[in-house]
Write a protein that binds this DNA or RNA. Structure first.
Length: 285
DNA sequence: ATACCGACCTGTCAGC
DNA sequence: TGCTGACAGGTCGGTA
């Protein structure tokens, strides 16, 4: 489901709502698919830890966890952080296609496909729900390295260098998380439209000037999407249960056979690397 | 290195 | 009403 703007929106919401809280206990369902780390390791890593910060890396939600200097969540939560660094860990959540993270009261009905519930010292619960189970949960004691570079931070030169000389279609390269992390099917299509490049163009065949344009287009489309809370296609909601609004700004994604907003030509849909790809045959070369 | 395909899962919707 | 197939924001591993 979620690409960079949706994950960013969710991570910000979680940062606001659960940072500073402490995980008291963890329940994990019996479906092993979403677990990249053993359930016992996830529970042991989370329990008793303070959530210092929630942020995003590519399409991953990263919870920075801190060991508590003393027992008991509620009291410890108010303690100032000691200067000496305590052992830290990270809880990594990848939402896959249909994953959701919600913060709710314990009395709230447990949704179907709930795979993890973390009880917090504040009395609320943090729940991971994922019908298709393409999501992944893992814990790391060292640093977590998602690979690739952040599209919103990468310099123009670095961006151009990522794609120059590659024989793969530019869209496949945009979706490759080892190069650029966070761009998915919607934003790849939207960025390519704005840059005037067809999805199947070989990266190596794109001029430096066009790659610069693509760099700007990727950043622009991601920023605009974050500002609107992401794209809600069928079931995406943020940590507060709110839908995003960027789907109303899509210029090609999901608009097969509809007129191009620039030239009126019918938007085309082709399958590339197993994914639907949308483009305007006139505006994109 | 690259590219295509199926696999992993469940849910929804269109068409018959 | 119900069946079937296509499709869905993502990634991985196998095979040419």
């Amino acid at each position: 489901m979620p690409e960079l703007p949706e994950v960013e929106t969710i991570a910000r919401g979680l940062e606001t709502r659960v940072a500073g809280d402490t995980v008291e206990s963890v329940w994990i369902g019996s479906r092993p698919q979403p677990l990249k780390s053993p359930a016992s390791a996830i529970a042991a890593t989370l329990e008793g830890k303070r959530i210092a910060r929630v942020h995003r890396a590519g399409k991953h939600i990263v919870f920075d966890l801190e060991a508590q200097p003393n027992q008991g969540g509620r009291l410890a939560r108010r303690q100032p952080r000691p200067a000496a660094s305590l052992p830290t860990a990270q809880w990594i959540v990848h939402l896959g296609m249909t994953g959701r993270m919600v913060v709710c009261e314990p009395a709230a009905e447990i949704a179907k496909h709930t795979h993890l519930i973390a009880k917090l010292a504040s009395g609320r619960e943090l729940r991971f729900i994922d019908p298709r189970m393409f999501g992944k949960l893992s814990v790391h004691s060292g640093g977590f390295d998602p690979g690739g570079v952040e599209p919103l931070e990468v310099s123009e030169e670095r961006f151009v260098a990522l794609f120059r000389g590659r024989k793969t279609p530019i869209k496949s390269a945009l979706l490759n998380q080892k190069l650029l992390r966070g761009v998915g099917n919607i934003y790849a299509d939207e960025a390519l439209f704005r840059a005037g490049i067809r999805p199947r163009r070989r990266a190596a065949a794109i001029t430096r000037e066009q790659l610069r344009k693509l760099h700007r287009a990727v950043r622009e489309v991601l920023r605009e999407a974050i500002a609107l809370g992401g794209s809600s296609i069928s079931d995406y909601v943020d940590a507060d249960g709110e839908e995003g609004f960027f789907q109303l700004q899509h210029r090609v994604y999901g608009r097969e056979a509809e007129p191009c907003l620039v030239c009126g030509t019918a938007i085309r849909r082709v399958v590339l690397a197993g994914r639907s790809s949308h483009y305007c045959p006139k505006c994109q070369k």
